[in-house]
């Protein structure tokens, strides 16, 4: 028997099989991960548009019902205070994000540009503050706030949020300022600008993307927050979206179509912002943390 050039030796077959198997495994993993990631969202939405009569059926229909309705969404606004929860949350989130960015940027600029004793230490302190379980701050703050009459007010809640948002904003923004060459500011000061003038003419315009990202990040953290809200807020008038949504779950028969409709509405802004920011968040949360 002669060796024809076409003959396939085991040496070339085995790697090919491995490669094909590898691809198949990879494809299966991708499908699995995507389904795991997407299905709960899909289920949330499908439930929200299902007629009430079909919700408590077993086995459940996996596909959207033929009689899909958007009526739960309308009922939400009529029968619940979803509108005011959204407004409350938006107010708290915008307010805290704004002040977190303002105070955070001020500190970040100094930490990024000045050399002083305790600079390293203050960065570590900033990092530590975002590592404590929130309940450790929430409990004592609850005691203090109750004495100051700050409980059950959105202002008090925002103040509490600033406790952990300002340090986070400072760390994220410091990473951004660090990326702007000092020489630009030096050139500006030699060209005749004061430090404050340089800050407004050079540094801030160049860090706009960073400021925007940090603002949005703080926004969704406030939007998502539950523990502080649960402890500090009592009156339904002052509920944020988290509280409003959670209030459904205690009821004897949960109106799942409404819950899922509300959940869908609440998820949308957070999810959009989160996905837009994901790359930057990873950077900020790790290396940006204490890099000097």
């Amino acid at each position: 028997m002669t060796d024809s050039p076409r003959s396939i030796s085991p040496d070339t077959v085995l790697p090919r099989i491995f490669k094909a198997a590898g691809r198949l495994t990879a494809a299966a993993t991708i499908v699995f991960l995507c389904s795991v990631g997407v299905f709960p969202f899909y289920w949330m939405f499908v439930t929200s548009i299902r007629p009430q009569t079909e919700i408590f059926e077993f086995p459940p229909q996996i596909l959207p019902s033929a009689d899909s309705v958007f009526e739960p969404y309308l009922r939400l606004f009529d029968e619940t205070d979803l509108g005011s929860w959204l407004l409350n949350s938006a107010g708290v989130s915008v307010g805290t994000a704004f002040f977190a960015c303002l105070f955070g940027a001020m500190a970040a600029y100094i930490l990024s540009r000045f050399r002083f004793r305790g600079r390293e230490a203050s960065q570590v302190v900033l990092l530590m503050t975002q590592m404590f379980p929130a309940i450790l701050l929430a409990l004592p703050m609850f005691v203090v706030f109750s004495r100051l009459g700050l409980l059950d007010s959105l202002f008090g809640l925002s103040l509490a949020y600033l406790a952990f948002l300002v340090p986070v904003a400072a760390l994220l923004l410091k990473a951004f300022f660090d990326a702007i060459p000092v020489e630009l500011e030096e050139a500006s000061m030699i060209d005749g600008a004061s430090r404050i003038g340089t800050l407004f003419r050079i540094t801030l315009p160049l860090s706009l993307p960073g400021l925007a990202s940090t603002f949005l990040f703080c926004f969704i953290i406030s939007w998502d927050e539950f523990l502080f809200a649960r402890m500090f807020i009592r009156q339904p008038d002052n509920w944020t979206v988290s509280l409003g949504l959670a209030s459904f779950s205690g009821e004897f028969v949960t109106p799942w179509d409404q819950v899922m409709a509300a959940a869908t509405i609440i998820t949308l802004p957070a999810a959009v912002i989160f996905l837009a920011l994901q790359r930057y968040l990873v950077r900020g949360l790790t290396s940006g943390g204490v890099k000097g």
Partner: peptide, 22 residues
């Protein structure tokens, strides 16, 4: 695919709790 995989991270905690409860 990347976006779909990361999606769960983007959902508010309360929403995740309720959807999974369901």
């Amino acid at each position: 695919v990347r976006v779909l995989v990361i999606l769960p991270w983007a959902v508010p905690h309360v929403v995740a709790a309720l959807v999974w409860q369901w």
